[in-house]
Computed example of a mutant assay.
Amino acid sequence: MTLMTPQLTKADRKVLKKLLKKSKQLPGGYIPINRHAESEQKYYLNHLWKEKLIWDATLPGTPETINGITPYNAVLPSPDGLHYFEKYREYKREQFLSGIVWPIIVATITSLIANMPNWLPWLIKLLK
């Protein structure tokens, strides 16, 4: 079983962690944002949106449309975004096991089997 998590940079994960923390503090989990402000965070929000970790949302109490345009003035963590770090840890654990632990176990067993002619007589003598 291979788990697939979106490939996020360290900065993306930092922004997502801040958003999740802020979402828990606000009613409904809606995080107000200013789409027109030029900021570095805007780049990260776009990347998180493309990876479907956050959704565009309209704050409760705002009109549904303004001049026919829906004003997305908030973001909301998606279910994938809410559980991203859990999946990320599982993915890293799986990579660690398949990349380091299992090869060491296989190499140890192979080495023991290959060296059996050397240590088997000694072991039999020791057990008598």
Rank of each mutant, 00 (worst) to 15 (best):
K17G: 04
K21C: 01
K21S: 10
S23C: 00
S23N: 00
K24G: 14
K24P: 00
Q25C: 10
L26C: 00
P27A: 08
P27I: 05
G28Q: 11
G28H: 04
G29V: 06
G29L: 06
G29K: 07
I31V: 14
P32H: 03
P32K: 00
I33K: 07
I33A: 11
I33T: 12
N34P: 01
N34D: 15
H36N: 08
A37E: 15
A37F: 12
E38P: 00
S39H: 05
S39F: 02
Q41K: 13
Q41V: 15
K42G: 07
K42R: 13
Y43F: 12
Y43Q: 12
L45C: 05
L45Y: 08
L45T: 10
N46V: 03
W49N: 11
W49Y: 14
W49G: 06
K50W: 01
K50V: 01
E51M: 15
K52L: 11
K52G: 07
K52M: 08
I54F: 00
I54Y: 03
W55R: 14
W55D: 15
D56I: 01
D56M: 07
T58E: 04
L59G: 11
P63F: 04
P63Y: 06
E64N: 08
I66E: 06
N67P: 01
I69W: 00
I69A: 01
P71R: 08
P71G: 12
Y72E: 04
A74R: 03
A74E: 02
A74S: 08
A74M: 02
V75T: 09
S78E: 08
G81E: 01
F85R: 09
Y88N: 15
Y88V: 12
E90W: 06
K92R: 14
Q95Y: 00
L97Q: 13
L97V: 13
S98D: 07
I100K: 09
I100Y: 10
W102Y: 15
I104W: 14
I105P: 05
V106K: 13
I109G: 04
T110Y: 06
T110G: 15
L112M: 13
A114V: 11
P117C: 10
N118H: 02
N118G: 02
W119E: 09
W119C: 09
L120V: 06
P121V: 07
P121F: 06
P121R: 09
L123T: 10
L123V: 11
K125L: 10
L126S: 09
L127V: 07
K128T: 03
